[in-house]
């Protein structure tokens, strides 16, 4: 069954269309927009965090070993991380 998209009826619209659930936009996965995805070569990674700081989606996070990954549910494939990665540890590959 299709998940109900709240609100549907007019009486389900809350006063003022105020959203009480902070950051619930996470439910919207923008990852489907991308035509290419970033791939990390951890052997080249110097763990500087440039990819993390420059990600417009805020979807690059540091893993326990200090290397980084993009959350592909949100990554739109802009290629900034690969372009900015100083040691060249990230490459963009075609989706699909």
């Amino acid at each position: 069954m299709k998940k109900k998209k709240w609100p549907e009826a007019w009486h389900e619209v809350n006063p003022g269309c105020i959203v009480f659930a902070p950051a619930n936009a996470r439910e919207y996965h923008t990852g489907s927009w991308k035509a290419q995805r970033p791939i990390w070569d951890d052997s080249k990674c110097i763990k500087c965090g440039i990819c993390y700081i420059f990600c417009p989606e805020g979807c690059v996070t540091q893993q326990e070993d200090g290397t980084f990954r993009a959350d592909l549910d949100y990554c739109k494939g802009c290629g900034i991380c690969a372009h900015e990665c100083w040691p060249g540890a990230i490459t963009m590959i075609e989706e699909g």
């Binding site: 950051a23 919207y28 996965h29 417009p56």
Partner: peptide, 16 residues
């Protein structure tokens, strides 16, 4: 404080 799932264009400098 601005979560993933926003609808800015790819590579948007403004949302960054």
């Amino acid at each position: 404080y601005l979560c993933s799932g926003h609808r800015a264009c790819q590579g948007c400098g403004e949302v960054l």
